[in-house]
Design a protein around this nucleic acid. Sequence first.
DNA 1: CCTACCGATCGGTAGG
DNA 2: CCTACCGATCGGTAGG
Lengths: 201, 201
Amino acid sequence: MSTRKRSATADEPNRRADIVRAAGRLFAEKGYAATTIRDIAKAVDMQSGSPFYHFKTKHDMLRAVVLEGIAAINDAVIKAANSGGTPRATFEAMLRAHLDQLLGSAGRDFAATLLHESRHLDPEVLAEVTALKDRYEAMWQKVLKDLKRAGLIADDSAVTRLFLMGALNWTVQWYRPEGAQGIGQIAQQLAAFVLGKKRRG
Amino acid sequence: MSTRKRSATADEPNRRADIVRAAGRLFAEKGYAATTIRDIAKAVDMQSGSPFYHFKTKHDMLRAVVLEGIAAINDAVIKAANSGGTPRATFEAMLRAHLDQLLGSAGRDFAATLLHESRHLDPEVLAEVTALKDRYEAMWQKVLKDLKRAGLIADDSAVTRLFLMGALNWTVQWYRPEGAQGIGQIAQQLAAFVLGKKRRG
DNA sequence: CCTACCGATCGGTAGG
DNA sequence: CCTACCGATCGGTAGG
């Protein structure tokens, strides 16, 4: 909104951001290795050599996409974690925030690239991403601890957290925006699944 | 064991099977698109053109790997599903069988390729795989129904099945053979997670 | 950001 | 199953 750094106006579109968005969509769709620089250039109406004016290598594009993905998820879930309700309400808000990023149109390509293409990152960048992911997952470990303390779950071990991450992240494989299930519904059903309460209807 | 078809003897090694195994390992490790025919040929000590004596295209190699993966998982879990104990015992046996295929040395490369590289299949083969997967998942839907009827879970909907598949299949992302958790332990913990019972220790 | 290009590598094949 | 090869395509760059 305000002008920090050098803000992009309507007449001065941010071509770098365009490239990151297009790369995210293509990486999510076809995979990093199967996506060519020419695919990305065409998607943003450039010639095949031009993306290299904005990024030094294809790996740097992957890095930008993956870091944007993890930052978006992290920010959204931090906000939910600090929303200050009961442990159960906090947990549900976190599930919703994570799923919004994974499945919503704003972030799903970044998230899918993060989940499926991270193995193509350079080792140093992978270490960077792993560190961010560890911090992120510690947030979930904490809410599990609170849920156990409140008597809502039986086990708050690391394995429980990993099962939960699996149920969450696997939604990318089956969720369809046009389907019967909304994102909020899925979050509620997952909360019920983990907390072992019956739902109505 | 017996000689159906034309069995491979020690003097007549099955080079086709060697290629499928090597391709599975490389596809699991680097991804389908990033694996070259030359990688596969080198892994089985052939020249770069020779794999095409056994397979018409690289896609056919992917097909062989993926179908071997799904067949192995399907066979193992069918056996567990028919082991004839209580619903809980059957469920635990199925979890164990699925995880053995995903994480054990015999099948993990095929399974990882199935889980992560299926998008590179030709449309017809993808449809074939999807049909097999639907049949496979129906088996899980059935045991969930039995568990609900026995009062062990609250919800046996399709979404519950998908959460369970997520927890199961995500183990590929974090399980390490040399780690503290054994496969059998993980199966037990997942059963406890889903059935909501406390474990000892 | 475009033009024009380069060296490397890729999947696949003919002929034996 | 090897030898020798082909056309296509790839990531990336020099120069403007």
